[in-house]
Amino acid sequence: MPDAPAAAEELERVFRRIHETRMDGVPILNPQLQVEVVGVRSWNGCSLAVLVTPWFINLMLLPATVEQAAAFAALPLGTKQLHRLPAGRFEFIVGEEADLGRYEMCSLFSPVLEFESQEAARLAAAAALEALFDASLDPASGADEPARTDAARSVDGTTPAASAAGENDVGDRDLTSSATRHPELPPSPTAPQMGERGAASSLPALPSRRGFLTGRLQPREGSR
C-alpha cells in the first residue's frame, strides 16, 4: 500500500485529471481554486486528508494497509460509514474511482464559490483537519454542541409541575428561553427524578433500563 505522501500525490493526480476532463465546463467551479491535498494524516490504518478542488472540499479517507483495503472493498458503494474521530462522530460516504480504488468522503464545502483564493481554501482545509483531531470539540465531552447544551439547560428549566398546576399558569413563559422560572419538581416516589438533574453528562446514577421499565406501571404487553 502507498504511504501517506504517495497516497496524497495519487489523490491529487486523479482529481486533477477529473478536473480537466469530466468537470470541464461545469458551471459551478470556482476558477480561483485548484486541486490540492492539504495535510495528510495516518489514522486507523488509513490516510486521512482534506482534498481541495474547485468544486468541493472534502475529508478523504483512503486505506493505507492491506487489511483496510480489503475492508473498504467489502463496503457497498454509496453506503454511509460512521467513524469516531476526536471531534465527534462523522459520517463518510463510500466512493470509488478507477485509479484510486475505494475511498470514503465526508463533505465540508460544496460548491466552494465563497473561497476567494487557493490560500483561503488551504487555510480552511488545514483548520478543519486540525479541528477534527481536537477532542474539546467533541459533543460527548460536554463542552460544545448546541443541541446538547440546549437540551441539558432545558432539563433544569422545564417544569412539568408548573404546567400540571394550572392551564394558564405557564402562559407567560418565554418559549424561546428556558431561563425563566425554576420551581422544584414534586418529589415522585416512583418515577426517577430526571427532571432535577443538570447537564446530561452528570447523569451516572440513572436507573437501569429494567428499573425504569418496571419502576412504574407494569407494561401491558401483547395488547398491540
Partner: peptide, 8 residues
Amino acid sequence: RRPHFDAG
C-alpha cells in the same frame, strides 16, 4: 450519490 458528483 455524492461521490459521483465529486468524481465528475
